[in-house]
Amino acid sequence: MRNLFNFIARHYFFFLFVALQVIAFAMIFQNNFYQRSAFVNSSNYIAGNIYNLRSNITNYFNLKQINEQLAHQNTVLLESIPGTFLQTDQQIFTLSDKQYRKQFSYYNAKVINNSVRNRNNYITLNKGRIHGIKPDMGVITPQGVIGIVKEVSGNFSSVISLLHSDVQISAKIKKNDQLGTILWEGYDYKKATMLYIPPHVQLSHGDTIITSGFSSIFPEGIMIGTIAEYEIKRGDNFFTIDLDLSVDFNKLNFVYVVSNIYKEELTDLENITQN
């Protein structure tokens, strides 16, 4: 036993190194597998406030662009107001009237930290639990889908960007409603990949890809991107489609957090059916 202690004491440099590596890798695995980072993530108090300060300064330089985006969005909203409402009681009222019930509500938030250069990218927002943000809510801009809320603290929230290996978004081709999955394979923040479109579907360059609305996170019809390239790889039964993302992830300012009011009801029902 004494020898063992002596051995460890003599090689303390190596053993301390191994211990620290074990701690670091434990953190990596815990974060990757459980999407949990209760303490060390950028929605914590110090980091959140530093990012807030930085974005307060840099925002002045983007005011013109933000104004243009808001004006554009206003016109879009004026044209499509009923889009986010769920139609109910169709059979009774089809002829004379339709009844809608609100399904999605939106919170506005400001991006205070963002990255596009890693394999797994995260975004920090300046709204948190006390503003009503909860994990698993969707994040969008008028230009398109941004990501999914991962963790919230009191005043900030940490969002998994679409540019992340764990994110898969249910999407469809706008012109023919064919369902597929969007994911990001890294390398370029302007591109994404769409999978699982069967080979009989007619595709063309520039076709619009939108959210399917099946995931209960995003409303139907939120823009994702347009088709840039498509091919059937040898041995595959499906198209591999390269998309040009409609959002410039390097230039995020203001975003909307989407909350689905019926989310719990939907997921409970689906869990019962599947189990």
């Binding site: 890798f25 434990a26 990596i28 974060n31 993530n41």
Partner: peptide, 22 residues
């Protein structure tokens, strides 16, 4: 760890920097 805290990378910079110090 400090860098990880600010970039949401959780342990990656910690592991790399410790290895470099080793």
């Amino acid at each position: 760890l400090s860098i990880d805290m600010f970039s949401d990378t959780m342990g990656m910079h910690t592991a790399a920097t410790t290895f470099m110090a080793f």
